[in-house]
């Protein structure tokens, strides 16, 4: 089998793409979540009345019990770091300008974890953190700028 080593050989490879574009909807529960984040800066959760699992962001159904979730509750965007990483490379493999602190955060009052960014000096599992919100919010997960240490 041949390994392609000479990337300048125009005959052996060429560039192409699959042009695709999507129009996504935020969904039934997602609409409630982003309204809540945009308007009052809270993280809307939903709780399963059968198993009591609290999902944040809120979801329409419980994957464990398969029931519709009807108990919505606003949670303060405050919690503790469950795990973190400091990412040094871009998705294309090139180095990042500033390392990204990716984190899973256990929001107080929720059972599921919440995925977002941190902006702290030295991240640590268990560190107490709160969300820093954008002043003008448009109903996006990026309305939360990052989580910082309390």
């Amino acid at each position: 089998m041949k390994e392609l080593k000479n990337h300048n050989d125009k005959l052996t490879f060429f560039s192409g793409n699959i042009p695709l574009e999507s129009l996504y909807t935020v969904g039934i529960a997602g609409d409630k979540f982003f309204q809540s984040l945009k308007n009052i800066g809270a993280l809307l959760s939903s709780k399963c009345s059968r198993c009591n699992y609290v999902y944040v962001p809120c979801r329409l159904f419980c994957e464990r019990c398969f029931d519709e979730l009807k108990e919505y509750k606003e949670l303060e965007p405050v919690g503790a770091v469950y795990s973190f990483s400091e990412v040094n490379i871009e998705r294309d493999g090139s180095p990042v300008k500033t390392p990204v602190q990716a984190a899973l955060i256990k929001i107080n009052g929720a059972d599921s974890l919440f995925y977002h960014r941190l902006n702290v000096k030295k991240p640590k599992i268990g560190m107490k953190v709160k969300a820093v919100l954008e002043k003008y919010r448009k109903g996006s997960i990026n309305d939360i700028r990052y989580f910082e240490e309390i």
Partner: peptide
């Protein structure tokens, strides 16, 4: 809606899993 705008890939989330 909730994750892609934050730009994660598998390397990132496996780093979270490994750290935990």
């Amino acid at each position: 809606t909730t994750e892609r705008p934050l730009g994660p890939n598998l390397l990132w989330i496996f780093a979270l899993e490994m750290n935990r």
